[in-house]
């Protein structure tokens, strides 16, 4: 599956050069990229160093001065991390058409974004959700804060299966019910639900103070309508409803127009609400999406 690429060393090395475009995270320095530890207000001691003029005397270690007669300043780990949550729609529609591997692409994107976030000393986790007969089914990975723990995501990523109905609003509501500090929420879905549902979900995230980004995932065949011409028996992956039609000529054009309409409506909503919206149509578009589409929209800097 394509999501396994998220743990490919070459891909990870490539991802390390990217950074999330987070507007409110790091507080002390302004720079293209934060590297290393930055002194800041925090409660977790990090190191000692000799006093230099101008240092905040509040952090002078008086016990050391008393014993050694040296001025030593205590440094602390700055509390500048933000929580990044990648919400992945794992409904059955993400697994159809099977050849497109939409869920694989969504998980690859989610893991890649999480890795970039971890590289920036942020904590990241993945949350997959769908609605099954037993109710809302939510799978959440633990937060990863260090690169050493990133491989721990692999079992979670590879275990996700597409099933159930799409439940964007319900899943987001469940996520927000944890009352975690507002951070960055990236919603990855095919958004094949009523517009009201995904609009409600995105609005919930915004209301909760999350910096929200939406990645619209579709398969290669699904987005281009490259179905084999002829009589087809269509089966809805979620509802199971079957319909027969002849896939040829004008039908393809009508289909493509419908896809464009749905994407345009979603993009319009995101634009109106300052939500970064990106399209990832097709597995082959992964590199292009990561290096061009997401930076263009500010998802990645």
């Amino acid at each position: 599956m394509i999501e396994a690429r998220a743990f490919d060393p070459q891909v990870l090395a490539w991802l390390e050069r990217l950074a999330l475009g987070i507007q409110r995270s790091r507080s002390i320095r302004v720079g293209e990229r934060s590297v290393g530890r930055i002194q800041g207000v925090g409660i977790e001691p990090e190191n000692f160093r000799n006093y230099a003029p101008g240092d905040d005397l509040r952090f002078l270690d008086w016990n050391v001065f008393a014993r050694l007669d040296d001025l030593v300043t205590r440094t602390y780990r700055a509390t500048r991390q933000i929580e990044i949550t990648v919400l992945v729609d794992s409904s059955a529609s993400m697994g159809a058409p099977y050849e497109d591997d939409k869920l694989g692409l969504a998980l690859l994107l989610a893991a890649a974004l999480a890795y970039i976030a971890i590289c920036d000393n942020n904590s990241a986790r993945l949350v997959c959700f769908s609605r099954t007969r037993g109710g809302l089914h939510v799978q959440a990975s633990p937060f990863c804060r260090r690169l050493e723990t990133y491989p721990d995501l692999r079992p979670f990523v590879t275990a996700v299966r597409s099933r159930g109905d799409t439940a964007l609003d319900e899943g987001v509501a469940a996520f927000l019910s944890e009352r975690r500090p507002a951070g960055l929420a990236i919603l990855i879905s095919d958004f094949l639900v009523d517009a009201a549902e995904y609009e409600s979900a995105l609005a919930r995230l915004l209301t909760a103070g999350f910096e929200t980004k939406a990645i619209h995932v579709m398969g290669e065949r699904e987005s281009t309508g490259s179905f084999e011409a002829g009589l087809c028996m269509l089966r809805d992956a979620e509802s199971g409803e079957r319909r027969e039609l002849v896939m040829a000529g004008e039908a393809i054009e009508l289909y493509r127009a419908k896809v464009a309409e749905l994407a345009q409506r979603l993009a319009g909503f995101c634009t109106r609400h300052a939500i970064a919206y990106a399209q990832a149509f097709g597995v082959a578009s992964f590199e292009r999406v990561m290096t061009r589409e997401l930076p263009r929209l500010g998802v990645i800097r």
Binding site: P97, L192, C232, L234, D236, E238, M247, L262
Partner: peptide, 8 residues
């Protein structure tokens, strides 16, 4: 042909 959604 299994499709993600008939709404398309």
């Amino acid at each position: 042909l299994e499709v993600s959604s008939l709404r398309l």
